[in-house]
Write a protein that binds this DNA or RNA. Structure first.
Length: 483
DNA sequence: TTGAGAATAT
DNA sequence: CATATTCTCA
C-alpha cells in the first residue's frame, strides 16, 4: 500500500489558513486505480488535507483497525477487486461507526448510490469530482463528531441490526469497539485495564501489533426462537436431569447448529432452568392463593402436543386446550370455556363418553382488545364444575346446559341454533390496534424479546396475531418430541 | 434506572 | 457441571 503522506500540494491552492481547522484533516483514500489515486490524492492535498493512499480496501481496513485515531475521514472508491466499497462500508459501520466515509464512483446508477448511502456512506461523489466537492469533505467530519453519543450508539445498533452477520441460525453481532474515542464512557478504559489486552490504537506498540484486529473476537449469540425450539426439544428428549451442557451441545451440533460452545449452551440452560423454576413457583403460588380449597392437580400438566385443528369459525380466532387443563383456567375463563365446551361438543355431537370429553380440545375464544375479561357470567370458585360434572350436565340435562349457552333462551337441545346461526362477534373497533390480541397461552410463554412478548393477563399471555399459522407458536412453546 | 439475556468467573 | 457475577442493551 502506498502510505506516504506527502504534502506536495501544500503550498499551491491552499484553501484555508494553516493551523485552522480543516487544514491537515487526515484523509484515508482508497482506490484500486493508481492514476485515480494520484489524481484524487493531489486534489485533496490541494485542499490542505493530509492524505494517506491505499490501493486496496483490505489495506485500508488494516490501517484503520491499527491506527483508527490517525484518520478523520475515509474516501473510498466503490468498485474494487477483492473487498469492494460496500463491504468496506459495512465493516466500518460495524467497527468504527464514528468514522465518516465518502464513496466515490463513476457509476451514477440510482441503486448503486442508494446502496452506498444505506450502507452508511455520508455522501456519494460521482466522478469526475469537482474540487468544490472535495473542499467540503471536512463538513462530514464535523457533523459526525457533533453527533450525540446516544445517536451514534443508536445508529450503530441500527446498522448492527441491518447488516449483522447471520451464520445459520446463530446471529452473531460483532462487538462494538473503540468508537467515539473521547466520547466513550469512562469505564471503557477501566475495562481495558482489567482485561489487560489491547490499548488504544495509538498506544499499541508499533511493532506490528495487529493482534487486536477487530471482528475475530468475542461475538454475542442470540437464541432465536428456532434455536430455542431445538434446544428445548433436546432437553425434553434427554430429560431435565440428564440434560447437561455437553450433551446438549453435541446434539445441537449434530443438528447443524454452528458456532456453539459448551459455555453458551450452559448459559442458556441456566436461564432455562431458572425460567422453569419460576414458572413452577408462580403456578404453585397462584394455586395456593385462590384455588386451594378445590381439587387441584399437584403439578401443572405440560401443555400437550399441538391440537390437531384450530377453530376458526365465524372469522373468530380460537385456540384449543386439552380439556384436562380446564382446572387451571381462571374463573372467568372457566365460565367461558364451559360454554364453549358445551356448545361445541353438543352441536357437533362429537363425543360420547366422559373420557372422550376429557380429551376433547377445548376452544378458548380469543378476545380482542381490552385488557380485561369480556362480560360474562361470573362463576364462583366453589361452583366450578369438574369435567365430570360438566359432562354429566351435557349428557343428562339439556335444560341446564342449554340455558348456559350465550344467555340464549332456548331450553332444549333441539332448540339450539346451528353453527351457522350463531352470530359472529362484531369486529374490534378499528382504532384500537394496541390490544388486538388473538390468542393466549397459559404461563408458558417464553419471551423471545421484549417486543415479542405478549400482554400478560392473569396467568395467561396474550399474543398478537401476527401469523396465520399458530402451529409454529405451538411448536415453539411445546416442541414436539424428537423421533 | 432496571430487568433480561448472554458471557464470564468461581 | 452448577452457580454466581459481570456485562450489555433496551
Amino acid at each position: 500500500m502506498d502510505t506516504n503522506t506527502t504534502k506536495e500540494g501544500e503550498g499551491k491552492a491552499m484553501l484555508m489558513t494553516k493551523n485552522k481547522f480543516p487544514f491537515g484533516l487526515r484523509v484515508l483514500l482508497v482506490d484500486d486505480d493508481r492514476t485515480s489515486l494520484q489524481v484524487w490524492g493531489r486534489m485533496l492535498q490541494a485542499c490542505g488535507y493530509q492524505v494517506t493512499k491505499c490501493l486496496r480496501a483490505e489495506d485500508a481496513l488494516v490501517m484503520l483497525r491499527s491506527y483508527r485515531s490517525r484518520f478523520d475521514i475515509l474516501i473510498s472508491d466503490l468498485h474494487m477487486p477483492g473487498m469492494d466499497g460496500f463491504k468496506l462500508l459495512q465493516i466500518i459501520g460495524l467497527e468504527m461507526a464514528d468514522l465518516p466515509v465518502i464513496v466515490i464512483s463513476s457509476d451514477d446508477d440510482y441503486n448503486t448510490i442508494q446502496k452506498g448511502l444505506i450502507n452508511g456512506a455520508c455522501d456519494f461523489l460521482v466522478k469526475p469530482i469537482p474540487m468544490e466537492a472535495l473542499k467540503m469533505v471536512w463538513k462530514y467530519v464535523v457533523c459526525k463528531r457533533r453527533m450525540k453519543l446516544e445517536e451514534v450508539q443508536k445508529q450503530q445498533q441500527q446498522q448492527l441490526w441491518n447488516v449483522g452477520h447471520y451464520y445459520g441460525d446463530v446471529h452473531l453481532r460483532l462487538p462494538y469497539r473503540d468508537h467515539q474515542h473521547n466520547l466513550l464512557p469512562l469505564n471503557e478504559g477501566i475495562k481495558r485495564l482489567k482485561r489487560g489486552t489491547d490499548g488504544d490504537e495509538d498506544e499499541c506498540k508499533a511493532s506490528g501489533d495487529h493482534d487486536h484486529v477487530v471482528g475475530a473476537k468475542k461475538s454475542r449469540m442470540i437464541w432465536t426462537a428456532d434455536l430455542h425450539h431445538k434446544f428445548v426439544a433436546i432437553v425434553n428428549e434427554l430429560g431435565l436431569k440428564r440434560a447437561v451442557p455437553k450433551k446438549i451441545l453435541e446434539r445441537m451440533q449434530a443438528m447443524g447448529v454452528p458456532n456453539l460452545t459448551r459455555e453458551k449452551v450452559a448459559s442458556h440452560l441456566q436461564k432455562y432452568r431458572i425460567y422453569l423454576q419460576k414458572q413452577k413457583d408462580d403456578a404453585l403460588q397462584k394455586t395456593d392463593q385462590h384455588l386451594a380449597p378445590l381439587r387441584r392437580p399437584q403439578e401443572i400438566p405440560p401443555l400437550g402436543p399441538p391440537p390437531p385443528h384450530t377453530f376458526n369459525h365465524h372469522a373468530q380466532m380460537m385456540n384449543t386446550y386439552p380439556n384436562h387443563q380446564l382446572d387451571l383456567l381462571t374463573q372467568f375463563q372457566r365460565a367461558r370455556t364451559v360454554r364453549s365446551i358445551i356448545r361445541s361438543s353438543q352441536l357437533n355431537n362429537i363425543v360420547t363418553t366422559h373420557e372422550e370429553f376429557q380429551n376433547l380440545p377445548v376452544p378458548v375464544e380469543a378476545h380482542h382488545g381490552q385488557n380485561k375479561p369480556l362480560t360474562t357470567t361470573q362463576m364462583a370458585d366453589d361452583q366450578t364444575p369438574t369435567s365430570e360434572q360438566i359432562w354429566n350436565e351435557i349428557k343428562g340435562a339439556d335444560h341446564v346446559a342449554a340455558k348456559e349457552i350465550d344467555g340464549s333462551t332456548c331450553t332444549t337441545k333441539s332448540e339450539l341454533p346451528g353453527l351457522h346461526d350463531i352470530a359472529p362477534r362484531p369486529p374490534p373497533p378499528l382504532h384500537d390496534t394496541s390490544g388486538d390480541f388473538s390468542f393466549f397461552f397459559k404461563n408458558n410463554a417464553l419471551r423471545r424479546s421484549s417486543g415479542d412478548c405478549g400482554l400478560l393477563l392473569n396467568e395467561y399471555t396474550l399474543f398478537r396475531d401476527n401469523s396465520e399459522d399458530y402451529s409454529s407458536l405451538w411448536n415453539e412453546i411445546c416442541p414436539p418430541s424428537q423421533g
